[in-house]
Design a protein around this nucleic acid. Structure first.
Lengths: 351, 351
DNA sequence: CGATAAATCTGTAACGTTACAGTTCCAAAG
DNA sequence: CTTTGGAACTGTAACGTTACAGATTTATCG
């Protein structure tokens, strides 16, 4: 009943010259279907008070015109930006993972209305700047943060203002928030395990910067491993994976030359592993002979570089996917407690 | 004359409850200054028909409130998005440079109203998709493209629609457009030169994928070098720097084992250099002894990896800066002919 | 038969901004 | 004294969308 197609009522849309060249809007569809703009809007949203046949008709025309909602219009009216902000602290290590992470995030965002805006900030500058900007200008619906600290001012800030976010890395804060993390504790433990299996006794670890949460996790796993396999720690806490490569090499070289040199080394990043390997070589030792090395990396080059290194891969593409998924769910209102995940290690020799 | 401060005329702004909590808008400033919204807008744009004193007053209030124009409002009214789109074809090599390039671009965009939106697209899919999307939805004021081909459909498309863009890499198309490129011809020539200086005679090159413009440049430089130094080419055209690493390694290994093995190898990417080095080692040869290798990389790890490799660094951070600068200038209306630049090589041994 | 409800559809206003076409005031010119 | 003109300011409308409060039509009930 009521075909509706002849219900072209009074002065709906005044200008029929809408049709030329320009991008189609709701108005265009309204004119073409003889419906009101509101009806078209609601039809495309599948609202319950619009007739089934009408919805079908509207959808058809919209598809044919290639209609895409105007982002500025939606944003102005609703405040919804359809933007995800990726906030990056820009150090050497992050540079190598950024591409992969962006890829993973985009992969999930494809087919959603979301765009990815990348907001790096210089390491020296105040890390609150980008986060404050996003909050003040409402320029994103959600934020992805990296380089998480146990008590992280950025996270406190976002949580207070109820701005959806996910962190790459955990915190030790009093509230629950979505995160994705790599199981660095397991990595360090398993690294010790592997060195023990090769008969190594005295282990040093080239650790992440202490202020980051995952540094603590790493050390926990390391110490747990040492205890479990009754190995000894050789201290190496005056450098980190973010010390300039030359510094890392020199430190490892002199460590390897010393009488208390370790016979096993764990490296928490690919570039560190390479610098350390150079240091070991300079000290006249060989990986797989006098020393063994276990390392984690993003690029997958270590095995090519030196197959004796016991290597594992941290998959930043999958991390990006996981982060994006969690953030979208958070924006949609999911319980943060259900949006926490941890990646497990896969060692290259097990693949 | 006319202090203006007591000219609070009739019904300007109806709602004084503007002041609470919410983000300040032109309306807020209008209310606070007793001016009209239009006047405030024009004052902030430094329009010529606004009094000097008024401008000063408006700017003061705006600064104090931390006023930032609403992007959606501006975009809806003017069509200006204040967005730069970075379109990335996602292959392994691009992943390693993305971080650096994003960093360089952001560096230039800081302090401008521009945001950076990253739009990767899967390699297999149609490369026109992202570009068409940007054009159809008007979602960016300008586009940065990588992986340029000599006759590039994306570039033709953008040029036709008059959408500002810059390319990372040149084309061979009939019109002038902004670009930034690395001088791959000089790189290849100088690589040959360096191998010649070490007494190498038979050179192979692990080249970029043939469809990309810079592959041609590279080969031109390579052949020019061979001629200049009277060296011989050993063909290696069944693999490229984008062949999976295992394939590259195997190809290099068997090439090195063959009776016509080259004594010099040029690698056009860091990951290729590492795979090739592994192949050389498997064939029982040593870099710096039986063979020499010259390579270009982004990460700066090659010298650590194996100091015998003659390495140079392609600086993607500076490329990002250059691309952003050129694009902003293009958007502002500069002549494309003035927005073309080429980066020169710096070899690690010269630094 | 009138009243009430349910199902569809609609116009108006508003989000924040700017282009445009005024308006107001005052000084200088005729 | 009127006219002209310029300087400084202003209101209205529009960009595309959606929330809201109706309006219209048809079916159902007493």
């Amino acid at each position: 009943m009521v075909s509706g197609s002849d219900r072209v009522s009074a002065g709906k849309v005044h200008a029929p010259q809408i049709l030329e060249g320009e991008r189609p809007t709701l108005k265009t569809i309204a004119y073409l279907t003889g419906l009101g703009v509101t009806t078209v809007s609601r039809a495309l949203k599948d609202a319950p008070d619009i007739g089934a046949e009408t919805k079908e008709r509207v959808r058809l025309v919209a598809r044919q015109l290639g209609y895409q909602p105007n982002r500025a219009g939606v944003r102005l009216r609703t405040g919804k930006t359809n933007v995800i902000a990726l906030v990056l602290g820009m150090d050497a290590e992050i540079m190598s993972m950024t591409g992969r992470m962006v890829y993973g995030i985009s992969d999930v965002l494809t087919g959603t209305p979301y765009h990815l805006v990348v907001t790096p900030h210089m390491n020296s500058a105040d890390p609150m700047v980008p986060v404050r900007y996003i909050a003040e200008t409402g320029s994103a619906d959600g934020v992805i943060l990296s380089r998480t600290e146990p008590d992280d001012a950025r996270i406190r800030f976002l949580a207070e203002r109820n701005i959806p976010f996910v962190t790459h890395g955990r915190t030790e804060m009093e509230f629950i928030h979505p995160y994705h993390d790599f199981d660095n504790e397991a990595f360090a433990y398993q690294a010790v395990e592997r060195l023990a299996a090769r008969g190594r006794k005295r282990i040093a670890i080239l650790r992440p910067p202490t202020q980051l949460t995952y540094s603590g996790h790493t050390m926990t796993g390391f110490h747990r491993g040492l205890k479990a396999f009754a190995l000894e720690e050789v201290p190496l806490d005056w450098i980190s994976v973010e010390t300039p490569a030359a510094g890392q090499k020199d430190a490892i070289e002199s460590l390897m030359r010393s009488p208390d040199a370790p016979d096993g080394l764990i490296c928490c990043s690919g570039s560190s592993a390479i610098a350390a390997a150079a240091g070991i070589a300079s000290a006249g030792k060989r990986i797989g002979r006098e020393v063994d090395m276990a390392a984690k990396e993003a690029a997958g080059v270590l095995p090519w570089f030196q197959p004796e290194i016991i290597a594992m891969n941290e998959d930043f593409t999958s991390a990006g996917r996981e982060l994006a998924r969690a953030l979208l769910a958070r924006i949609a209102g999911s319980d943060p407690a259900t949006l926490q995940s941890i990646d497990m290690s896969t060692w290259t020799d097990e693949m």
